[in-house]
Amino acid sequence: MRVIVLGAGAMGARAARALVGLTGIDALVVGDIDLGAAERIATALPRAVPRRVDVTDAAELRAALAGADTVLSTVGPFYRFGIAVLQAAIDTGTDYVDICDDWEPTLRLLELDGAARAAGVCAVVGAGASPGLSTLLAAAAAQRLDRVRHLYTAWPVDSTGPSTEDAMAGAAAVHWMHQCSGAVAEVSDGAIVHRAPLRAVTLRLPGGRRGTGWTVGHPEPVTLHRTAAPSGESACLMLLRPATAAYLDVLRRDIDTGRILPDGAALLLEPPSRSRVLRSLPGAFARPGPGDLPPFFAAADGTVDGRPVRVCARLETDDRLLHDMAAVTGVPAALATAQLPSVRTPGVHPPDSVLDGPRLFADLAVAFPGTRVVVEEEAGWLTE
């Protein structure tokens, strides 16, 4: 298989490194508008060549994709570039994988399903960590139930290990501030709704685990609404220390009232604004924390033979991996790309509708020894 990775940033570089070590990858192109960045990655990898690709140049983009079987796009923000790259893949008959973690462009990408089907193109959107691994964990949890009521995914920000805020920079930080402000998509009573983010959700998981996560804008609810069809609530949760949740809520309110733009809020993540830290102190002492919730998991409840059952599917791995955004996003995307020849289902899909979850997690354990999925269940509901 001939693959082109678009984007020579940290995640594209990590995906490219993973791809060259996988069976079935015969040739790899690293494409970026910055040819020098592409060259630095490609020259260090066997069977890889660099190429200048400007995704805003329709002719240049299509020429690059025409020589590939599959494109893996790490070029964000996806609300600006996602549709253009997927449309080019459809036009050139190139299979497609991306790491889109924004719910609004995810919905727009899914609208190209008919065009992809007609062109015989298989596209998988959101195949990184969250969404991606989180979506596959949600599918593993939901499969234990006859009927799904609530369904949540959760990932750590600073509840364990080093702070994700420290790793947030540039476009990633601005994106995060967008998803922590305004209104975001969730599922309520089985339907898509729009709510303010940073809403507390307290969960009771199997084994007596209990804690609180905070809602954030992400694609999981809008795709799981289609694939798992929860009849109750579904949201993506951040696991935060109380002080972090309170500080983010101050930034959220300042963004929503127009006192600051998301770009400006991103600059106040590290170092934090002293005045806003002071404003957040009352909330820091009043908000609940993540308790003993696992760092990366999906949880579902529903019924089995008419009885209430709660299920948790969690990823056990080194905490350092969960806070290495490039690795935990780029490697799963590469593994998803390698699966496409065996999938070959035309259309635009979320990961859980076409990918082999157990195979992907098994491959992840090869890349990161000691990684495994643990699924636990017991009688009862997730929420009181």
Rank of each mutant, 00 (worst) to 15 (best):
A200V: 13
G291D: 09
V157A: 06
R51S: 15
G347Q: 05
R210T: 14
A196E: 12
A265E: 08
L382R: 06
P162V: 13
V201K: 11
A246I: 03
P156L: 07
R80D: 08
S273K: 07
V277L: 15
T135R: 07
R40D: 14
L151H: 04
M238H: 11
A18N: 04
Q143E: 15
D263S: 13
T153D: 09
P131V: 08
E384D: 15
E378L: 11
A8H: 01
V374Y: 02
A42Q: 02
G207T: 03
A167E: 14
T383L: 13
G114I: 11
G217N: 07
G76D: 10
E376H: 01
A129R: 03
A229Y: 10
E104Y: 10
H218Q: 12
S130T: 15
V75Q: 01
P105K: 01
Y247I: 03
A327T: 09
C122N: 10
P271W: 08
G36H: 11
T56M: 09
V354S: 00
G306Y: 09
V187N: 03
E376Q: 11
E39A: 13
R307T: 13
R195P: 00
S275W: 14
G170I: 13
T223C: 10
D319T: 12
T92Y: 06
P219I: 07
A48W: 09
A173D: 05
T303Q: 04
G347I: 03
R149W: 04
A336S: 05
A336Q: 02
P351A: 15
W176R: 10
E378W: 08
S275V: 15
A334R: 02
W176C: 07
A266H: 06
L278Y: 11
S275T: 14
T329N: 11
M238Q: 05
L136P: 04
A300N: 01
A89H: 09
R62K: 14
G126E: 07
A115G: 12
G306K: 11
L110Q: 12
P288D: 10
D113V: 04
A64S: 08
A13M: 01
I33N: 09
G36T: 13
V49I: 12
A66V: 02
R210W: 08
E377Q: 15
S342P: 00
A142C: 10
S280Y: 08
G357Y: 07
E378G: 04
R149E: 13
R252D: 01
E384N: 07
D101Q: 05
T223Y: 09
L261I: 06
R210M: 12
E165G: 04
T317C: 09
S159W: 09
V184Q: 12
S231R: 14
A336E: 00
A169S: 14
R314I: 03
A115L: 14
T227F: 12
R40E: 14
G264K: 07
V193N: 03
A266K: 06
I25W: 00
E104A: 12
A185E: 00
L198T: 05
I4A: 08
P206V: 05
T23Q: 11
L278C: 12
G289M: 10
